[in-house]
Design a protein around this nucleic acid. Sequence first.
DNA 1: AAAATAGTGTCTATCAGACAATATAGT
DNA 2: ACTATATTGTCTGATAGACACTATTTT
Lengths: 258, 258
Amino acid sequence: MSNEQALKQYDIKKYKTPDGYTSDIAVFTIVSTRMETFKPPVMDLKIMLIKRSMVDSEGRPNIEAGKWALPGGFVDPNESAFQSAQRELREETGVDHIHLEHFGVYDTPGRDPRGWIISNAHFAIVPEHQIAKREASDDASEVELFSVENVLNFDLAFDHAQIIQDAIHVIRQKLLESTVAKEFLPAEFTYSELQAVLLTVTSESAIALDAAFARKIKSLPFIQEIIGKKTTRTSKKPTQLYRFIDMEVNNSIYHAKK
Amino acid sequence: MSNEQALKQYDIKKYKTPDGYTSDIAVFTIVSTRMETFKPPVMDLKIMLIKRSMVDSEGRPNIEAGKWALPGGFVDPNESAFQSAQRELREETGVDHIHLEHFGVYDTPGRDPRGWIISNAHFAIVPEHQIAKREASDDASEVELFSVENVLNFDLAFDHAQIIQDAIHVIRQKLLESTVAKEFLPAEFTYSELQAVLLTVTSESAIALDAAFARKIKSLPFIQEIIGKKTTRTSKKPTQLYRFIDMEVNNSIYHAKK
DNA sequence: AAAATAGTGTCTATCAGACAATATAGT
DNA sequence: ACTATATTGTCTGATAGACACTATTTT
């Protein structure tokens, strides 16, 4: 084919190119604010931010120094933005093989004072205990978990206020419209544990009422009852355990649910 | 603040940067394959592709020449990828103010032989009559509508086969899980017109059966009956007209539909 | 026995889906 | 009158949500 010939004559400098390509990651975790024996949990949805240091690695004053920001960084030329997000999450927090999803591109001219810098935004779901480990292993003063209720009141770097707002909207939707709630839970969980996860993003009665939700969970096509297996970690009366089934959920607004 | 000082010392050349930043657009339209008087329509979902010319504007051999590709192009430094998609759509087809949505980033290393080129993929919905106008106004041999059923059998440029496959998946989902079907229809439409749109992406009985669907449309919270207004364009017996209401749809997999 | 959480009984209302039957207007 | 599409009647079974009540276990 003549592609090689065309390539030889192609002038890569013909177009102005971006000054940078980055990945940002909104790391969500859920913290159990009540965790006594024989009690169902009460949970709070948190987002992890880092405080930008005053000077960079070479000792020069840093951009947006002192502000809170999403973890992230520049994409290497031999990787995709998604892989970059995975790598940065691994380097930053030591966490690997967790749920990571792209949700948006931020490329409005002027969003970064350093130039034409494009960022791909991702959200990640990290179980509580993995974050705890991380905070202990690094200088904790630079990392903090913020409740999604008030994170937008802080002083945030670049356009991260917008990205974070979008991320919160996306995770709310995802929790209710897909089975990602799974990623916040152990493989085997009780109705009240799933309920606690969902109550971090909704307060509708069908979920908030115990009896209604305990009954509903049995009829959800993507959740399976583990016959004969119970736990007493949330109550004195042994509670039925469930697990998620891998399946595509049907969200059609024109169809009834099965 | 000290951002200005930091900026002065910032070395924009520190990181390797992409060789190009582009937008691609999967333009969907629906063609009515049966359109007689007093007959409900039968529709086919199509995607618009262009045939890459053999030589570029300067007369040199073109990359991926002769292959079918999504319309698109390089993003200008003073616009976002989304604005670029709008602009290119306007320039290419003369169509403006239509439904356009970003759905993915394609940045796998090696996806474009010219270098590290990142593409943002969008889908657009263009009503049939606007596409018709365009085909007449330009050299028609370079533009063609392909049925989504068989477009993947053609010889496609770059990684556009992947992008197109993803776009088809996205539009299927969107048609069933959001109210974008609206964009394919006139403001006032009959149940059989909406039905014809949905039948391009599903064949489930609840939608395919006339009586069931005609009844269901009355109970959909995001569709309103236009009381007392009927048309005879789809049948001899006058048919009730409906319109979409602007509203957020609730797709929660844990809630019942209203 | 008291306390707390899990789970069931039961009622009401609604809805989906299937299919048969009827309504309407042009030809 | 015939025909094609729209619309309603009706039956069956399922489901949601509300709320009262029962079950189970530890202390």
